[in-house]
Design a protein around this nucleic acid. Structure first.
Lengths: 251, 251
DNA sequence: ACCTGAACACCGTTCAAGT
DNA sequence: ACCTGAACACCGTTCAAGT
């Protein structure tokens, strides 16, 4: 009765993951929201998001796809639940240290990227979900809190959270394509081929692509992420006026 | 024979979109790569990317899905061709003005976002494709050229192109969700609901989300984009050392 | 209340057969 | 060379029926 079936914004308060706790007759055969998410997560890690289908997950649980609908409204909801569970793994610095807010913000972003990396191409689902589940709330709260601790205005903090999340999620998704899309072989071969292609373009039409064929195709993933992260965080920091009282131990 | 069927990096030079030009017997009945892309684009604009299926496009052309495979290798390739055509619409400042490189870079990003906005949720396909088709090359070339004109190093320019593209593409995709996903009603209702939800969270666990429930859910799309764009461009600009010879008319 | 088999309305892609 | 009908192996979801 309490369960809202329809959509994202759920009522607050102490919400349970599955149904009410009950003495499970046979743990291995009983279906539950939790066990469904477990199974789906396993499929995701092993074969990627495309393999996470109702039929595939049901099969892993030894039942038919129709059985899942007693615990999950939709495929979308199931994937959202998996995403929420994954986001739970993101490490959040505690406590917030106002003197290190920029670094702590970066730590959250890095941990988010690493968490996505551990779970196939789940970032794709995150890009389209603006996650507001139980698992995402602590993360969002921490990011906002860290920004506020740094003296960032509420308005800028709000936008910044969005942009930072967009950045690490999109980065994770793009990275995951190298592994989970048909078209590209491993990154190395693909990059080499792309470099040859750019280098052989007509110079009069695409002079800059020809000239930069090498750097354009040789970027290091981590370096690129750190570069972008630094741009964003420094930019955000530039919106807060420097503290008036410069403590003695400014070092 | 010349046509490379396999993948993204195509040979350079003067490539044709469809097959060789031929006297079309009955314009309305003949199939071609171009007409397929035309039809697919129409479906995309009207109903979104999910509706762009082989069967749907074939139907719009008055034929069966199997017929498309004579002109297109894959569904993926078909969508990539649609994307490439869309990217063609992006406005590129010409000529490059080194004194206005930051503004010109922003103009490219804005035009890209607007172009995506005009074509459903095609941004989703772009996020997963690192477009390197005929249509994307001028855009990439212009971005790189503009960055170099601003004195940005080749390495930083290369990373910056990636990050800027990631930013406007991910922004466009996220925006398109409000229209093309089942879960959310129009943005207004959804934001109102989300605001209520955040505001009703337990204050002890999520103090910052409760406090910022309003700004977190009231952002203006364009404003957020401009804010992020400005962060990135300013950050990129900060990597180039100021010009040594400060011309007289520095104004 | 939960689970199930069967069915419905879709997919992308292949393949033998036509022209 | 291009096009086609039919089939294959999948989808998500519904629904009547079981317990």
């Amino acid at each position: 009765v309490v369960t809202s079936d329809d959509g994202r914004p759920l009522p607050p308060g102490p919400r349970r993951q599955g149904r009410a706790r009950q003495p499970e007759r046979r743990p291995s055969r009983s279906l539950s929201r939790t066990s469904i998410v477990d199974a789906a997560l396993k499929v995701l890690d092993a074969e990627g998001l495309d393999a996470v289908t109702m039929r595939r997950v049901a099969d892993a649980l030894g039942t038919g796809p129709a059985s899942l609908y007693a615990h999950v409204a939709d495929k979308d909801e199931m994937v959202a639940a998996v995403l929420d569970r994954v986001i739970t793994e993101v490490q959040i610095p505690d406590p917030i240290d106002p003197d290190r807010w920029q670094e702590q913000l970066k730590e959250i972003a890095r941990s988010s990227l690493m968490t996505f990396r551990r779970h196939g191409d789940i970032a794709r689902a995150s890009l389209g979900n603006i996650p507001t589940g139980e698992g995402a709330l602590p993360l969002m709260n921490a990011m906002v809190g860290t920004l506020l601790a740094g003296g960032v205005s509420p308005q800028v903090a709000s936008i910044s959270v969005d942009i930072l999340a967009l950045f690490f999620t999109a980065t994770a998704y793009e990275e995951s394509l190298e592994t989970y899309s048909r078209e590209g072989p491993g990154s190395d071969e693909f990059h080499a081929e792309l470099k040859r292609f750019l280098g052989s373009l007509p110079v009069d039409r695409f002079p800059h692509l020809v000239a930069l064929a090498d750097p354009l195709t040789s970027g290091d993933r981590d370096h690129r992420f750190e570069f972008g992260l630094d741009l964003l965080v420094r930019g955000i920091a530039s919106t807060v006026e420097p503290p008036r009282t410069n403590r003695h131990r400014a070092k």
